[in-house]
Amino acid sequence: MTISAEKMKEMLWTMVLSRRFEDELMDLCKIQGKIPGMMILATGQEAVGSGACAALEPEDVIITNHRSHNHLLAKGANPNVLMAEIFCKRTGCNKGKSGTLHMAVPEINAPCTSTVVGAGPPIAVGRAFAQQYKGEKRVTVCFFGDGAAAEGSVHEAMNLAGLWRLPVIFICENNVYAGAQRLEEHAPVLNLADRAAGYAMPGVIVDGNDAPAVYQAVVEAKQRALSGDGPTFIECKTYRCRGHGEADPQHYQPKDEISAWQEKCPVPRLRDTLQAQGVITAADFQDMENRAAAMVREAVRFAEDSPYPSPEEALEDVFAE
């Protein structure tokens, strides 16, 4: 499959934007202490969200987890409202009720970010069921981690999706760690995609630091789903270069392992490929970085200038009126 230059550039752009956005978050949280709560970043894993979302239409749905910023930006979320939500301001996408961990952006068909590990897949099954029920030619993509793959909920969801041939794409972002536990310490198999066989769906393994490879796998999964052949399980092999959260000193992660994976960083990798192919020039890339920096600066300014919600507004939004 050849991937258009436009798609390639789109993937590179959302990766560059995500990286800048999260580097800024790291600084805001760790160095400036401006952001409350936990700060969970996907630095080095951007090829997964950016590759997958490039294969989706705006009407396709994503369900994501605690490590969501790249998924949401790649799906098209407005950086201003995400940043404001992360600052817990009233102008955030959820009026400050979610904060960084549970941002819901239904307007871009990213209706649920759950920090309850393993909660995404059953909800994705429901969303895909609705797509099938309504006869929409749409798919639902669910992002979850290697750790989440140990939750019973994930297995129930995969079983049901397999049984009902639902148009759902399970994207397991295998970043080697679940908290402080390495894959070998929390899973009896090294390829989580092996589990797909038990639910009658293809289990595909891709290099999770290769955005075009992820894109291609999702395009194929989408074709299967839309032709009625049901779900696909895609395991993206990648690596968590930063701590579980920014408070994690990574004492259990071998330093040379981290640096080896930093060498495989998906952003320069796609940049170099595209430059070698003549799809972009060095100046084009610099331009992307400048644009991302400007957007993130603007997002931070927007967030900082925005007010906090009033305390009493906490009482709103519990029930639909």
Binding site: G99, Y308, P309, A314
Partner: peptide, 13 residues
Amino acid sequence: DIPVPASPPQERF
């Protein structure tokens, strides 16, 4: 009777 909100002024509330 609300879920605990993330925003600091609301969490204090």
